[in-house]
Design a protein around this nucleic acid. Structure first.
Lengths: 217, 217
DNA sequence: ACACAATGTGAATTCTTCGTGAATACCGCC
DNA sequence: GGCGGTATTCACGAAGAATTCACATTGTGT
């Protein structure tokens, strides 16, 4: 469960944000007093923080700086004035995004989602070692054949990008031998099986109907 | 398939560019006469345009301005003189990048790739990424079939503009198969459903009675 | 030369998507 | 309000893709 900390002294706004985020499947916790924020983060380590700039007890800027001394958790700053934003960005507090009131809840949620997604960018847990021709997923070494390794490497070279079968075949062989598209499928099947053994219940290789295969982020 | 229009009167250069881009997996179309460029774009809606500045028939600047009146397709301007570039950038024609001759083909291809990768956000909250074959609305990934994706891309290529059904059908298929107008409706329906799941209570695809469909701004 | 793993292929099977026509609801105009 | 044309929706058959499998072939090490 993804946990979001909302630091906001206006109760109605905090409740609204919490509602929307909950309906998106996030777990939320609201703190109204600036003094409590940093200690709570230290103790509970949320996945993202919505931080209001104007707060009783302690200033948002201050809190942000403080949190950054001990954590890289994504922070979204919420400010009341548009003009503030430029100044804030200039200060380089380490916040990940800025939203100014009045904002649309939808926009806020979209940004939160975008930032959280960006977080787990490099295919979590996948390591490719070219010299040793060895691949690891979540620390577990995968027992891949040469072709399977090259296939995985090709897909991993641009995670998320769709590779048509013929493009993959080019990547698979130096020479320009002519092989059927089915070959790709066969190897994908085996690759999937081995990836699945290392991380059950999740298919990292996704087929895009009518196009090709991609590695899921 | 990502389609690139090359507007270039020097046949050898055009062929060279086309070759390299094809080897990168892009589909290319070459137009030598400036007069034909804008109409072709209107009819075929490529994914990117390489536009030479000096052309017979009509000036590149002029074409660029014209195209921008009806489309947000990425445009890369190709100029003969370095000094031109500053002036061009100042004019703010809406081109996405500038390359000056003599350029290395590799550099050109790299820029094209970069521009296409960064995707486009034609309307608020909607992102289309061709190479990932992925569409996002408010950060939510839409699970689209190939035809739905192309349909959305076509509509998004000129947000607000109305596309007649037959125009959309041209965009939907490489080959010129003959299909009923109802087909468009069916796909629009599915597209609407999926867009609606991502952003409930709002219909981004609007039907213009007796004319066609458009994407609501 | 032998055993064994890896590879490529075509065919069988299972799934998805596509296109269509018919039923229904809607729009604009007389 | 009624009428002709238009849009929306639905379900189903067909086409096309993906997945899987068994097997022939090739390659590797012993």
């Amino acid at each position: 469960m993804t946990r979001i900390l909302i630091v906001e002294d206006e109760p109605k706004l905090a409740a609204l944000e919490a509602d929307y985020l909950k309906s998106e499947g996030y777990e939320t916790h609201v703190i109204a007093n600036g003094l409590e924020a940093a200690p709570w983060v230290r103790a509970n380590v949320p996945d993202l923080i919505l931080l209001d700039l104007m707060l009783p007890g302690r200033d948002g800027l201050d809190i942000c700086r403080d949190i950054r001394t001990f954590s890289d958790v994504p922070i979204v700053m919420v400010t009341a004035k548009v003009e503030e934003i430029d100044r804030l960005v200039g200060l380089d507090l380490g916040a990940d995004d800025y939203v100014c009131k009045p904002f649309s809840i939808r926009e806020l949620v979209a940004r939160v989602r975008a930032i959280l997604r960006r977080g787990r960018a490099p295919i979590a847990g996948l390591t490719l070692n070219d010299e040793k021709h060895e691949a690891q997923l979540d620390g577990r070494t995968l027992d891949l054949t040469p072709v399977e390794f090259r296939l995985l490497r090709a897909l991993a070279s641009a995670p998320g990008r769709v590779f048509p079968r013929d493009r993959l075949l080019e990547q698979l062989y130096e020479d320009h031998r002519v092989v059927t598209d089915r070959t790709v499928d066969a190897h994908v099947k085996n690759l999937r099986r081995k990836l699945g053994e290392a991380r059950p219940g999740e298919d990292l290789v996704r087929s895009i109907y009518g196009v090709g295969y991609k590695l899921e982020l």
